[in-house]
């Protein structure tokens, strides 16, 4: 079903106008998914330092304890939690389970994500900081 140019059309999934919880959940799922893939590569890149001896690694660890880096850790936890919890929601919905409650399930996923992220952030900053 052709209409607009391919790139314009393919960007349609980020268009939230008129969308409700389901569409928002879908968009966040994609964005966190893309974020996690990028994180995975950064993570592998950083692990490379282990092969370069203790000095390189310790220098990295020192940087990793900076508040900015800890904040990024918090963001990572937020992304992982949302993606995992909404993944459970989507798996159920995809099999036709709980469809009438999909919006409430979304808000539940959001609440749980934020709550656990807040606890995790508190733990990170008190322990590491």
């Amino acid at each position: 079903m052709k209409e607009a140019p391919r790139w314009k059309r393919a960007s349609g999934w980020v268009d939230l106008r008129g969308r409700r919880e389901g569409g928002l959940a879908f968009l966040l799922m994609r964005l966190t998914g893309i974020g996690l893939v990028i994180y995975l590569f950064i993570h592998l890149y950083v692990l490379r330092l282990l092969a370069q001896g203790p000095e390189a690694w310790d220098a990295f660890i020192a940087m990793a304890k900076s508040p900015l880096f800890l904040a990024l850790d918090g963001l990572l936890i937020l992304g992982i939690l949302y993606h995992a919890l909404n993944g459970v929601r989507v798996t159920l919905l995809g099999l036709g389970i709980g469809v009438p409650h999909q919006a409430r399930l979304f808000w539940g996923v959001m609440a749980l994500t934020l709550l656990v992220t807040a606890i995790a952030a508190y733990a990170i900053f008190t322990i590491a900081g």
């Binding site: 969308r19 409700r20 919880e21 389901g22 569409g23 959940a25 879908f26 799922m29 989507v90 919905l93 995809g94 036709g96 469809v99 999909q102 919006a103």
Partner: peptide, 19 residues
Amino acid sequence: CHSAMECTAVCPSNVDPAS
């Protein structure tokens, strides 16, 4: 299908495609 659920949300005729 990626379960965005918008089909069921906009359906004017009780079809509920998502389910």
